[in-house]
Design a protein around this nucleic acid. Structure first.
Lengths: 340, 340
DNA sequence: ATTTAGCACTCACCATAAACGAGTGCTAAC
DNA sequence: GTTAGCACTCGTTTATGGTGAGTGCTAAAT
C-alpha cells in the first residue's frame, strides 16, 4: 500500500507531467507548497514508487515520468474532480441552445465541441442503426427511368438511394407498390427489412402481375444496401499538436487505425455505462500504445445507447476530460430525451 | 528563347527533382543517356537557366531546384503526356463499374480514388446547388410534435430537416399545406425558394386559417436554411507524407486554409473548362505557397459544372496528375450523363 | 529510525570545431 | 564551342568537451 506521502508525490508527478510533458525531478517536487520534506526524501520515495512500477525514468539520470500503471492508479484513485471554467460551460450550453432536431447534427456538433475544447480527437458512435425501425418509405420519381427511394426511420434518420426504373413500369404501379410496402413494413427494424421483404414478396407476387417483380428487385437493391454504423470524428488533426506525436510515422499509423471504421466502432461499442478509460496498452491496437481512449455513453430514446469518445496521448488532462465528457454526454442525452 | 539543350537540361532537372525532392547537380545530369555533353557545359547552361529564372540554388554551392517560373514553363511546354499504368486504369474503371446512382456517392468515390492514386489531397466541388430545382417536398410525421421535411431536387439531391410541429396543427392540415406547396414550388430553383415562399405565403394565408401561418413558419425555417456548397475532401492526411511538409506548422496552416469551405469553394469555382494548374504564388493563400493546385471540371447534366481538384506540393508529378484527372473527370461526366 | 545535506556520477543537450563531399564558377587548354 | 581541372563554398556529419538537471548513496542530523 502507498503511504500518504507517496500518494502526494505520485499525484504531483502526474499532475505536473500532464501539464509540461517533461520528466519531473525531485527538486521541482520539493518546491511545491504542499510538500514539506526535502528533495532527498523525495528521491528515496521516488525510488520506491519506481520499484512498484508507478513511475519510470527515461534514462538513468533523468526525472520521473508516469508509467501506464501510474496513470491507471491516478485515474482510479487520485482524480480530483475539476470544475469546468464558466467559459467551457458557456461554450457547451450555447452549442446546445439552438434547437437541433436531427441526430446527425447534434452528434456532429458534439464531436466538434469536444475536440475544440480539448484539442484532442473526438469520436462519436451512433446507436446501433439496426435497432431503429422503418417509419416510412417514399419514392420520388426523377425522370422516366430514375427515381429516388427515401427511407425514414422512427429516429428521424433519413437514407436515400437512387435507382433505375425499368421502362416497362409505370409510375402508378410504383406508387401502388410503395403503398403496399409502407402498410406492411412500418415499424419493422431495419435489420429485419431484408428478411421481411423476402417473405412479403410472395404476397405481392400473388396479387399482382409479374412486372412488379422487377421493380421490386430494384427497390430491394436500393433499400437493403448497407446501413453502416457511422462514426463522427472531430479534430482529427489535433493529434498533430501533441508533442508525443512529433514522429509522423506514429501519426500516420494512428490515422490508419482510426480510419478503420468497423474496428473503431467495435472498440467504442464495448463500453459500459458511465465513463471508461483505456490507457496505452489497454488498447488493442499497436498504434494506440501511447494513447488513452476515454469513452462515455449517451442515451437515445429509452433503450438505445451511443458512445462518445476522446482520443489523446496517455498524458491527458483526465480530470478535465472527465468533467467535459460527463457534461457533454448529459447534454446529448437531454437533447435526445423525448424525441421518440 | 531557350535552346534545345537548355530545354533538355531543364526537363531533366524538373523530372529528377519531382522524383527525388533533392537539388540536382550537373554531374547527375551528365550521367543521363540522353545527355551527350559534359558536366561543365551543363554548369554553364544551368547558370544561364538560373539567370533566366527557371531554376534556383538552395545555397551558393548547391545543385539546382526548379523555380515556380520553371514549373510553369514545364507545365506549359515540357509536359510529355504520360500513359497511365494498366493498374491505374483498372482501379478507376472498377470504381465506376458498380452502378452508382447518387451524386454524392460518385463524388465521394472519385475523391477517394484520386487521393489514393496520387497520395495527394483531393477536393471535389459539387455544382452550384442553387442552380438545382425543387422536385418534391415531403413531410413525414414522426410523432405528434415532430416531423421531418424532406426536400428532393431534380438532380436527385436529398436534404432533410426535422422540425417541431405545434400542437394546434393537425396532420391533415400539414398534408394539405404540403400539397399546395408542392404544386406551387415544383421546378423552383433552390436559390429562389426563400423569395418564392414569401410571395406564396400571402395566397396561402388568404385561403386558409391563421393556424397555418405558424406551421408555415416552421416549415420555412426547416427548408430555407443553408444549402452550403459542399466540399468533398479525400486523403487529407496524405499531405503528411510529402517531405516538404515536415514542418508541422506548415501542415497546420494548410489544413486551416483548406477547412475554410467557402474560400476553397470560391478558389475552385474560378476554373474554366479543361485542366488548370495554379503553382505556388499563383495561389491566393499564404499557406499554399509551396503547393500546386490542379483543377479539372466535370459536367453534370447539360449546363452544370463541378470541379475536381488536387492539392500537393509544387513538386508534383504533373504529367501523371494530368492524365489521371483527365480520365477521372471524363468518367464522372460520363456517369452523370443522361441522369437529368 | 527518519530525514536531510553533501557529493560523485550519469547522460541528454548544446555548442564549437574539424573533416567531408557534393556542388559551383572560372580559367585555360582542346 | 566544349571540356578538363581546380579552387572555393557551404550544408552535413562526426568528434569533442562543457553544462546542468537529475540521480543514488553515504554519513551526519534530527
Amino acid at each position: 500500500m502507498l503511504t500518504d506521502r507517496q500518494l502526494l508525490i505520485l499525484q504531483v508527478i502526474i499532475d505536473d507531467f500532464i501539464l509540461t510533458a517533461q520528466p519531473i525531478g525531485s527538486r521541482s517536487i520539493a518546491k511545491k507548497d504542499a510538500v514539506t520534506f526535502s528533495s532527498a526524501t523525495i528521491r528515496n520515495e521516488m525510488a520506491d514508487l519506481e520499484e512498484m512500477g508507478f513511475i519510470e525514468k527515461t534514462h538513468s539520470s533523468s526525472g520521473r515520468v508516469p508509467s501506464e500503471k501510474g496513470y491507471r492508479f491516478y485515474v482510479d484513485h487520485l482524480l480530483s474532480p475539476l470544475r469546468l471554467t464558466s467559459k467551457e460551460i458557456l461554450t457547451i450550453r450555447e452549442a446546445f441552445d439552438d434547437k437541433m432536431m436531427e441526430f446527425e447534427r447534434v452528434v456532429q456538433k458534439s464531436a466538434g465541441i469536444l475536440s475544440d475544447l480539448t484539442n484532442y480527437t473526438s469520436i462519436v458512435l451512433g446507436p446501433e442503426v439496426f435497432e431503429t425501425k422503418l417509419k416510412q418509405l417514399q419514392i420520388v420519381p426523377l425522370s422516366e427511368q430514375s427515381a429516388i427511394a427515401i427511407l425514414v426511420t422512427d429516429t428521424g434518420h433519413v437514407e436515400h438511394r437512387a435507382f433505375n426504373v425499368p421502362v416497362e413500369i409505370k409510375g402508378v404501379d410504383l406508387e401502388k407498390m410503395v403503398n403496399i410496402l409502407n402498410s406492411r413494413l412500418e415499424g419493422v427494424p431495419l435489420v429485419k427489412l431484408h428478411e421481411k421483404l423476402y417473405t412479403e414478396i410472395n404476397d405481392l407476387l400473388k396479387t399482382h402481375t409479374d412486372q412488379h417483380e422487377e421493380a421490386f428487385q430494384y427497390l430491394r437493391a436500393a433499400l437493403v444496401d448497407e446501413h453502416p454504423t457511422k462514426l463522427y470524428i472531430g479534430g482529427k488533426t489535433n493529434i498533430l499538436m501533441q508533442p508525443e506525436f512529433r514522429d509522423l510515422e506514429k501519426v500516420r499509423s494512428l490515422y490508419a487505425t482510426i480510419e478503420q471504421e468497423n474496428e473503431m466502432a467495435d472498440l467504442l461499442r464495448t463500453g459500459e455505462d458511465g465513463i471508461q478509460v483505456r490507457i496505452g496498452q489497454e488498447n488493442p491496437y499497436d498504434a494506440m500504445q501511447n494513447c488513452s481512449l476515454i469513452t462515455a455513453s449517451y442515451q437515445l430514446g429509452n433503450d438505445q445507447y451511443g458512445t462518445i469518445a476522446l482520443l489523446g496521448p496517455t498524458r491527458m488532462e483526465y480530470n478535465r476530460m472527465f468533467s467535459l465528457m460527463n457534461v457533454l454526454s448529459k447534454h446529448m442525452t437531454n437533447t435526445f430525451r423525448g424525441w421518440y
